[in-house]
Amino acid sequence: MSPTQATLAPPTPSGAATRKPRRSRKGRPALLGIAGVAIVLVGAELLSRTGIVNPDFLPPVTEMYATLFRLLGEGEFWHSLVLTVRGWAIGLAAAMALGIAAGFVIGSFPFLRAFTSSTIEFLRPIPSVALIPLVVLLWGTQPQSAFVLVVYAAFWQVLVQVLYGVADVDPVARDTARSYQFGPLRIARSVIYPTALPYIMTAFRLAAAVALILEITAELVIGVPGLGRDIGIAQSSGNVPETYALVIVVGLIGVAVNLFARFAEKKMLWWHPSIRSEHS
């Protein structure tokens, strides 16, 4: 690719954007974002209050938040929250450890890579929920059921990214290391690991989201203790505001997970020329 001639232009290529008089452009997106959230919240409140949407199905937002604050004072809620987050974290950690180890081993040997690729391509798209009946038989509503689903779903994300990462190692760098008589462990640490790190961080981000989905699914569908199960109970007992309140909590956990993953990515890759954009 040809390097772009350094221009004087600040990166605002859109003609429309430069045409408008802009005074306080910096704070604008944040303000608009807050406005967007306000529109959704007020809109939902109005839809419910005016009865356009049956309040039995969509209670007023204020009521949802009132329920949410009540929940925050209850020990059971916190217990469920801890169980969910713990299940997610343990499953994710296991999937990361397994995926990285398997990825490095398979990726380092061309033969292993070629030999396993058809199997990986076959096993990867198998939906982890297919295992639900099996784990129910084996462990019922115990946390192991959720653990297996989480690990199965997240493992493939990690493995595939790590394989990409190991494959991305610059052959020249690898040859240089070999020509200096680096041992395999040193090559792994000083050449392969730094190249694969951005991919590992991408894997972490993708796997963290998938792991949360499967943890909640296991709780909701199988009845493994946690917020997912509480949502199911609230809904089947007709407690609509609590159902919504718990869904909001789960959504916020999801936001936190995403923000954490992105933060970790930035922290770990401050030295990297570009934060990779993944096409997984």
């Binding site: 997106p29 608009l32 949360l212 909640i216 869904v247 956990i253």
Partner: peptide, 19 residues
């Protein structure tokens, strides 16, 4: 539109779909 919808989308995409 992007600035307006960004935080809202950030939330909705984070909600695990099964719930």
């Amino acid at each position: 539109l992007r600035a307006l919808s960004e935080p809202v989308l950030e939330f909705f995409r984070a909600v695990p779909p099964p719930v």
